[in-house]
């Protein structure tokens, strides 16, 4: 569906992406994962036909991105990073304008349909300027869905949404992804894991890893990390846990928090719990701590050095938070 080979883009003398090569098959939902400035937006702008690459070839459904730009643009639904909206138009007027530009038949029915899809049915006549940020984001999404595009390109589609809306939008993307090919960018790892079948990790304009979500995590971690919240002396507990067979290292991450890593293939959770309780401490919580995106990048981009463990006293960010 999408073939990208040796894609390079220079802004003046600054190289934003260099030599990207990847394919996306029909019906896949693929995440483009990377930190700020990695080149996600740049790549998506090229794929959407907004700007031509400096070098390289991009084909969408067999159409060349430069030579057959209009054909590509007809196939693609695109939600840019800064949601392009006219604040003076109502939601309906805006979508009707886009539907007309895309020559959609029975435009008004289709507009009503996508407004329902993004759950803005009651705001259809509101001016876009008066909507909340999350609602605007959904109007932008509706715009991308209007013409039932074969390929959907979404640049950080869930940014600025509240948790309930994030879940809704992710479900929507999964739904759409059943029939369409979706490429979305994010810097939230769990988002990529939940929604996508495959992840392309990009850093400093280069693809540093490309795999299915599961494989990627296994490949990256190799070991498993856990977090224990307890009442009592955390550093003493850490020391005890560190002595368990199969635990690579353990440390007190906070006054009531112990983090430890176990060797691959060894389940030490029961033993760890027992140790804590036996030493007279109250075990409040035991949970796996997945690697944060930060850790993954550190691992991928500085492969020569082992990933540093989180700093003392700095609890890991909750999975939903941006890395």
């Amino acid at each position: 569906m999408i073939r990208v080979s040796n894609l390079t883009k220079d802004y003046g003398s600054r190289r934003a992406i260099s030599d990207l090569t990847f394919n996306i098959e029909k019906g896949e939902i693929v995440a483009f994962l990377g930190p700020n400035g990695a080149g996600k937006t740049t790549t998506m702008r090229i794929l959407s036909g907004y700007m031509p690459p400096s070098q390289g070839i991009v084909e969408v459904n067999g159409f060349d991105i430069i030579e057959q730009s209009l054909e590509v643009r007809r196939l693609v639904g695109y939600l840019p990073e800064t949601v392009p909206l006219y604040p003076d138009l109502s939601v309906f007027e805006y979508l009707k304008f886009m539907a007309d530009l895309r020559k959609i038949k029975q435009a008004e029915d289709r507009v009503d349909e996508v407004i329902e899809m993004v759950r803005l049915g009651d705001r259809s006549n509101s001016y876009i300027g008066n909507l909340s940020k999350g609602m605007r984001q959904r109007v932008g999404l509706a715009q991308a869905l209007l013409h039932k595009p074969e390929v959907l390109i979404l640049d950080e589609p869930t940014i600025g949404l509240d948790p309930a809306q994030i879940i809704e939008v992710r479900n929507l993307i999964r739904e759409v992804g059943r029939e369409h090919t979706v490429l979305l960018s994010t810097h939230i790892l769990p988002e990529a894991q939940q929604v996508c079948s495959r992840v392309l990790i990009i850093n400093k304009g280069k693809i540093v890893a490309e795999d299915t979500t599961e494989n990627l995590q296994n490949r990256l971690t190799g070991s498993v990390r856990f977090r224990i919240r307890l009442r009592g002396d955390a550093s003493a507990a850490a020391q005890k846990i560190g002595q368990i067979h199969g635990v690579l290292h353990a440390q007190a991450a906070d006054t009531d928090l112990v983090e430890f890593e176990s060797a691959p293939g060894q389940d030490v959770r029961a033993e760890a719990a027992r140790v804590i309780v036996q030493s007279g401490l109250d075990l409040l919580e035991l949970q796996p701590a997945s690697l944060s995106l930060e850790d993954i990048f550190l691992q991928l981009t500085q492969e020569e050095e082992p990933a540093p463990t989180p700093e003392l006293g700095q609890p890991e960010p909750a999975p939903e938070m941006e890395a």
Partner: peptide
């Protein structure tokens, strides 16, 4: 300025 040019330039319009 508003970024809506990106919308128009990625629509099937010359």
């Amino acid at each position: 300025r508003a970024g809506t040019l990106e919308l128009l330039l990625t629509a099937p319009v010359t």
